[in-house]
């Protein structure tokens, strides 16, 4: 469970020798995320997404307001290690987060840090590598793996800590479409089978359509919050925040403007196809002839 009250993060920037400027990156956030949810956070660059992510596992501390992760106040340094075990983080660049030169040793890194006994390390490393489908690469050098595989290793490294939440901070941004799918499939499965809370920060709107909730961030605030069908019902709002809708949503929106009756929520091409299937069996279907 993650909850914040009026969360603020500011930093100072020197404009000239004795003048300072205060930059407010997070501007009074109030969030409340229940366990086991799949949350997506979208927003253009500089909207504060990554700064929020870094607060969730105490890499950054709030300069105002409070954030609780699993009931622990993140600004209390005594909680830092427990919070980081509870909430793991996958970063953007797959190369820059791998510590060891052998896959299984990298997965073990966090466990070594928190002092897990050797026998337990082996068991937990094995289990997490199997969960992300990377067990057969356990003795390989990470340099030879694809981007998607490297990110799955990073996920396994977190999984080994038995976390309740995994934050993906633009972890699909540097991957090709195949790699992106690998990562999204892996975290969707963790969410549905192991009930691990997933917080996915991404620029690819297609990845967010499976979430329970989407947060849209702009200038350090959450400006939209709701299930995908709610967020994608208003494309003009998304445009205002410099974002795009998934293609199916875009087509549905254009068709609505042309007067087509589309009463059910459309998120994917499958949804769109089913709208036209409904027309065939007569739902909302009366031949309109050639007028309008």
């Amino acid at each position: 469970m993650i909850k914040s009250e009026n969360l603020v993060y500011e930093y100072k920037r020197n404009i000239s020798d004795n003048k300072e400027d205060r930059i407010r990156v997070l501007d009074g956030l109030n969030i409340d995320i229940e366990d086991g949810q799949f949350i997506s956070i979208v927003g253009h660059n500089g909207s504060g997404k990554s700064t929020l992510a870094r607060h969730l596992n105490a890499l950054l501390m709030p300069t105002g307001g409070t954030l609780w992760v699993n009931g622990m106040d993140t600004s209390d340094e005594n909680n830092t290690l427990s919070i980081r075990q509870n909430t793991g983080m996958v970063f953007q660049n797959p190369d820059n987060q791998i510590v060891a030169s052998v896959v299984e040793e990298d997965v073990a890194f966090a466990l070594e840090n928190i002092g897990v006994p050797t026998d337990d390390i082996w068991r937990r490393v094995e289990k997490s590598l199997a969960t992300v489908g990377m067990i057969k690469y356990r003795e390989d050098a990470p340099n030879h793996l694809s981007g998607g595989q490297k990110q799955r290793i990073a996920i396994a490294g977190i999984l080994a800590m038995k976390p309740r939440c995994i934050v993906l901070d633009e972890s699909t941004a540097m991957l090709d479409p195949g790699g992106r799918k690998e990562v999204i499939d892996a975290v969707r499965e963790l969410n549905s089978k192991e009930h691990i809370n997933i917080i996915l920060i991404t620029h690819y709107m297609e990845e967010t359509i499976y979430s329970d909730r989407i947060f849209v961030m702009n200038r350090g605030r959450i400006v939209m919050d709701g299930p995908p069908e709610h967020i994608f019902s208003d494309i003009s709002m998304l445009k205002k925040y410099n974002l795009e809708a998934p293609q199916a949503v875009y087509i549905a929106d254009r068709l609505r403007k042309e007067g087509f009756v589309i009463n059910k929520p459309v998120l994917s091409m499958d949804d769109l196809v089913s709208v036209f299937a409904d027309y065939k069996i007569g739902v909302g279907n009366v031949d309109r002839g050639k007028k309008s």
Partner: peptide
């Protein structure tokens, strides 16, 4: 890398175990 190590509970050699 420093951030990623912090995020994975790295806090020096104290109390560290080995795989």
């Amino acid at each position: 890398l420093a951030l990623a190590m912090d995020a994975r509970c790295y806090h020096g050699g104290e109390g560290r175990t080995k795989m």
